[in-house]
């Protein structure tokens, strides 16, 4: 999957699950999901479940950090790397 597709899938998921009532434009790819109130302390469990299911790999404990999951940009980079592909913009 190309990174633009990954981005689309992730953005769609976030919009559908965590941004009900918000416009897609209200979140930029680099906005921190915690700071913006998109994810809370329990929401991350849902997000991890989704990533594992959708992209068919398991998220290792040490990977569960904001550097990997903290913004759309970080998520795309992380998923692309884990799924064994480089980032193709």
């Amino acid at each position: 999957m190309a990174s633009s597709d990954i981005r689309g899938v992730i953005r769609e998921y976030l919009q559908d699950r965590f941004m009900i009532g918000k416009s897609p434009a209200s979140l930029s790819d680099t906005d921190p999901l915690l700071e913006k109130g998109i994810l809370d302390s329990t929401g991350v469990l849902e997000l991890v479940g989704f990533i594992e299911e959708t992209f068919s790999f398991s998220v290792e404990d040490e990977e569960l950090v904001p550097d990997n999951l903290g913004s759309v940009e970080n998520l795309v980079r992380y998923v692309a790397r884990k799924a064994g592909r480089g980032v193709h913009n």
């Binding site: 915690l34 700071e35 809370d40 991350v44 991890v48 404990d61 569960l64 904001p66 999951l69």
Partner: peptide, 16 residues
């Protein structure tokens, strides 16, 4: 409850 997400949880509680 899930020690896996601990680092993320910490980041949440350290917001601001």
């Amino acid at each position: 409850p899930d020690s896996r997400t601990a680092r993320f949880q910490e980041a949440f509680f350290l917001k601001g």
